[in-house]
Amino acid sequence: MCGRFALTLPNDAIAQLFAAQPANDLPQGPNYNICPTTPVHVVSAGEGIRRLQAMRWGFLPHWYKTETAGPLLINARAETLAEKPAFAEACRKRRCLIPASGFYEWPRASRGRRLPWYIRRCDDAPLAFAGIWQDWRQHSGQNGGQDCGQHDSQATCAIVTTAANQSFLPIHHRMPLMLEPQDWSLWLGESGKGAASLMQPGPEGLHLMHRVAMDVNSSGPADPR
């Protein structure tokens, strides 16, 4: 599960890290409280180049007539990614990387309260979440079953998750699929087939976790807490 995350790197540093060509409309940071449905940085590959662009965090299947026509799909389970109708084609053709500096989880504490924790790498290196993406068009009207207009397409994405490893289990039973630099090319489809081999919990002991202020429960604050 991943419901909020942070990204503190400047756009030029992200583009350099992933050897990607940056778009002109990237979100500005740093942002310590990135929320679902907002634009996020996404690295995709095609035609021999990598691109860094903004996409809506919240995958929209092509059959959604509006952004709220079905469940909000911010995460996609690795175990069923290739089988779910919403994700199957994107799993084969449109995999991506979603940069992050860390992310948040809310384990249940005493008296049933959920308290926010922040998770980052021990070496403070950036994270690369495995993701999938989809171009989506909102149907602006129908006439006798025929579309009578469409808005411009919107790029949308979801973060792939796996079962938690042992060190992460005290926080949550699911965790984002986080890829090491040597695996980025395979996930993006630049190195041929075999991306399915990456869809498993990461190594133990790579991450640190600490409690943060309850302010992160709100979508407003975007500064360090």
Rank of each mutant, 00 (worst) to 15 (best):
L26P: 02
D152V: 00
G145R: 06
I98E: 03
L52A: 05
F18L: 13
Q142L: 14
H41F: 01
A23Y: 08
D152I: 00
L208Q: 15
P116R: 04
A109C: 12
I34F: 02
P27Y: 05
E204F: 07
L177D: 03
H173G: 13
A88I: 05
N75S: 04
L177T: 05
C96I: 00
H207G: 11
S218V: 15
F168I: 15
W63Y: 10
G194Q: 12
C96D: 06
A90D: 01
A54H: 03
P221C: 12
G192I: 01
L198Y: 00
H151S: 13
K93L: 12
M55Q: 06
P176V: 08
G194F: 12
P61F: 10
V43N: 01
G46Y: 11
A54N: 03
T162F: 07
N24R: 13
G70P: 06
S218K: 03
H41W: 04
P22R: 02
G149I: 07
A163C: 06
S185I: 02
P85C: 11
L179A: 06
F87L: 08
H41T: 04
P85W: 00
R56H: 09
P27K: 06
A13F: 07
Q182Y: 07
H62P: 02
M55H: 04
D215K: 07
Y118D: 00
A125F: 06
I74R: 00
W63H: 12
I34P: 00
R95N: 04
C2A: 07
R111Y: 13
A54L: 10
L169R: 02
P203S: 10
I34S: 01
N24F: 12
H172A: 09
V42E: 04
L186F: 13
L72Y: 03
T66I: 10
E204R: 03
D12R: 09
S167T: 10
Q134S: 10
A19T: 04
